[in-house]
Nucleic acid binder design. Structure first.
Lengths: 234, 234
DNA sequence: ACCTGAACACCGTTCAAGT
DNA sequence: ACCTGAACACCGTTCAAGT
């Protein structure tokens, strides 16, 4: 995108002139600071020092605003995720990029699960499809594996983000997990629950997330074994 | 739960007396008929022919109402999902039960991704954990496999529900997929996209969903191979 | 063409007043 | 104790009036 500057020596124009970009930028700032409930048309227009109705000249409605904000966050992540030689590594990189973006902007998680047609989600489908194709998966198996992987990545990232929203810093996260573990064992005397609860306190969301990606990759490889002997099917 | 009836011959009381159950019941009916945006305190109280403030004697707030409604839908599904001999089959049954519940009540999908601590979600964790334990998975591997599976099931079901919300009946679903496939190939000339787009038109959400569960189970089995030779790790 | 801000038709929640 | 419904403090969106 080329920006042509007017060549006046001291620019008389302020950084004015509402635009879709400026509106989306302000929305992202508000969402990060105040969460999804904090995003109101009044907050956006106040942030931009303009009238309440002004944004409707550049954006259809609030849903559009939210979708555009999510695309603004994920755009760079998705743009940088195509060029890796090893398909497995490319998928891990993409998944972790999405995880980190949602971790930094938790409201993105809910937004991605809301609208399957939005461009950012379609881009994820595309990248996953290409990498799985490189692994030798095709036809229905490709569709099944692709949807499984995309749904896991988007679903899990949203799930972790929901937790992160409730516990923004490390200390509150520790308290949160402590409370969850305690309530867990209180509700359920099953010995397995006790063991899981103590693991819960120490686990790392990001590592667990990518472990899930690896389980998927192993499953895909196993079922359509292009590497090692295939496992039997029940 | 035992209901004790007053023994008057012609009951003078109507089916009155607001209760948490009646309020949740009305909320589910409204959510099914009008979607998540249709659930307003005014709609609920009108449906129950009472004052706007009445429900606050039985329910904390609107979030509480929504969580309780989701629990009301999933309760029976989760209660019936514990007793199967084959762990893999038990997991498939649970996953499909959740899928069908969300398919019938799409608003449940978004609700499950919103609050990780809600009882219904904890019940899913519990059941999945027990079944994976039966498969011989333990410790960190159990935590990783459990979180992967739970996140896939909840995430995927929510994703499919988001699609179903936009295309309630068969005809509109066909049009929806047709539009998506067309736009897909228009945006992206990659040959892989063309093949995927035609598969998209014929695929069955439910079958694809359970295929994802199977990929997961295969991955878990492969990585901690208690059946057949384990695949190597890169 | 773009912006303003009052006005409209809604919300969730509270609370004095009733029974 | 439970219910009522007016009142409060908000919303998203529209639109005549301005520049």
């Amino acid at each position: 995108m080329v920006v042509v500057a007017t060549s006046s020596p001291r620019s008389p124009r302020r950084t004015d002139a509402l635009s879709r970009e400026r509106i989306v930028e302000a929305s992202i700032a508000i969402l990060d600071a105040a969460g999804e409930n904090g995003l109101t048309v009044r907050a956006v227009t106040a942030h931009l020092s303009t009238g309440r109705g002004a944004i409707y000249h550049h954006v259809a409605n609030k849903d559009d605003l939210l979708a555009e904000a999510a695309a603004g966050v994920l755009g760079p992540v998705l743009a940088g995720a195509e060029g890796d030689d090893d398909p497995r590594q490319a998928i891990r990189t993409l998944a972790l990029g999405i995880f980190d973006a949602i971790d930094a902007h938790p409201w993105v998680g809910a937004q991605l699960s809301r609208e399957p047609l939005q461009p950012a989600v379609l881009a994820v489908w595309r990248i996953v499809g290409i990498q799985l194709h490189k692994l030798g998966i095709a036809e229905t198996a490709l569709a099944d594996a692709g949807s499984a992987l995309v749904n896991y990545v988007l679903g899990a990232a949203a799930q972790y983000a929901a937790g992160a929203r409730r516990a923004p810093d490390d200390a509150s996260r520790r308290r949160y997990l402590e409370r969850l573990a305690a309530e867990w064992v209180r509700l359920d005397p099953h010995p397995l629950v006790g063991a899981s609860a103590s693991l819960l306190r120490e686990h790392d969301d990001r590592e667990q997330f990518v472990a899930g990606v690896d389980i998927f990759l192993a499953g895909v490889t196993c079922l359509h074994g292009n590497r090692g002997p295939a496992a039997g099917e029940g």
